[in-house]
């Protein structure tokens, strides 16, 4: 060694600085015994590095997830089993807005008990997109599900041979891999939506209000509480809405019904309570409203990848309120 501090170049010195690994420590204890003239120098140099503090920048809670979502959607492989011609025939694009606040797992177990089949044990997986973030899931069959903020989905870890069933709470967009022998069913509150291969979005945030919108392809929608009623078959460009337990067909509005999956938060003539709920889910904040009486009755608008403060400023201008953001808490005051 030509320089007296060549130990600095030793890879184990780096380990000694940045860890408390016992083996590494023992090595250096021995090393210092063997090199008594350098022992103090080594110890002090270690302390000089260990005592340094770099400012630590941690990504905010949801940043890593939302960042991944963007990368995920931009790199998603185009599915190979659909050629261009067959897209038109088999790929249905469906947006489903369903309201389903019911204990998903309980429902599933009940069903199993009723059937009393000696089936092999099914393991259910529940995935949740926390408030303020979305989550993209790849199912084993090639299907992709995008969960909107504050939503969860339950599905078996591997699908049965003759069917694919999932249960949804909240809102989700589905791109279902085509499989004629295994129809794909989304259960939500009162509705069953069945498709063979399709893309669709399910919204189940609010109780008693279900929407299923289809962009292309074909789906079947059934009301589980009215078994005598004919199922509704949906054509592209239409959606079906459950109101007062009645299924009604309506025209689809792609921005309002599907925009969320492309980063659009939309309000279609919604009152301040509905807006509050959406914002809380979307941005993962808690909102308190004061002076509600002074706030305008409803608001319509679309924002794409906008900051919360800009959205609040814009809505506040239209609806007559002021707001204050304090970390995860938002205060809205009618004026």
């Amino acid at each position: 060694m030509n320089s007296k501090e060549d130990f600095l170049n030793n890879d184990l010195f780096r380990k000694w600085v940045n860890s408390n690994d016992e083996e590494v420590n023992n090595y250096w204890q021995q090393w210092m015994k063997d090199n008594p003239d350098l022992a103090n120098s080594a110890k002090e140099n270690r302390e000089l590095f260990r005592a340094m503090r770099f400012e630590e920048f941690k990504p905010k809670e949801n940043l890593v997830n939302s960042s991944w979502d963007k990368v995920d959607s931009l790199t998603k492989p185009k599915r190979r089993f659909i050629n261009f011609n067959s897209i038109v025939k088999i790929a249905a694009v469906l947006a489903v807005a369903v309201v389903a606040y019911f204990p998903i797992k309980e429902q599933l177990t009940k069903k199993e008990q009723e059937v009393k089949k000696p089936e092999q044990k099914i393991v259910y997986v529940e995935k949740q997109a926390k408030k303020g973030s979305k989550l993209t899931l790849n199912l084993g069959d090639g299907s992709i599900i995008k969960l909107n903020a504050g939503s969860s989905i339950t599905y078996p870890s591997s699908f049965a041979a003759d069917r694919r069933e999932v249960e949804l709470k909240g809102e989700a967009y589905f791109e279902i891999a085509h499989d004629e022998n295994r129809p794909f069913t989304v259960k939500s509150d009162k509705l069953l939506t069945t498709v063979l291969g399709t893309k669709f979005s399910v919204n189940a945030y609010k109780e008693g209000n279900t929407k299923i919108a289809l962009v292309s392809g074909k789906v079947k929608v059934e009301n589980t509480t009215k078994t005598d009623e004919e199922p509704v078959y949906l054509e592209p460009g239409l959606k079906v809405v459950l109101r007062n337990n009645q299924l009604e067909k309506e025209k689809l509005d792609s921005a309002y019904d599907l925009g969320w999956k492309d980063g659009m938060i939309t309000f279609k003539d919604e009152d301040i309570d509905e807006i509050k709920e959406k914002l809380e889910n979307w941005y993962g904040v808690d909102i308190q409203i004061n002076n509600k009486g002074k706030i305008a009755r409803s608001f319509k608008g679309i924002y794409r990848n906008e900051l919360l403060t800009n959205v609040l400023a814009s809505i506040g201008y239209a609806m007559n309120f002021e707001y204050e953001i304090n970390g995860n808490n938002v205060l809205i005051v009618g004026k």
């Binding site: 400012e55 920048f57 940043l63 890593v64 960042s67 990368v71």
Partner: peptide, 27 residues
Amino acid sequence: YKLYHPLLYNYGCQFRLDASIVDDFIQ
């Protein structure tokens, strides 16, 4: 991605540029 994003973010922010640029670059 989720493993390296925080490491890269911390490294990138040491350059004292706008943090959102760092996230964009990582993507």
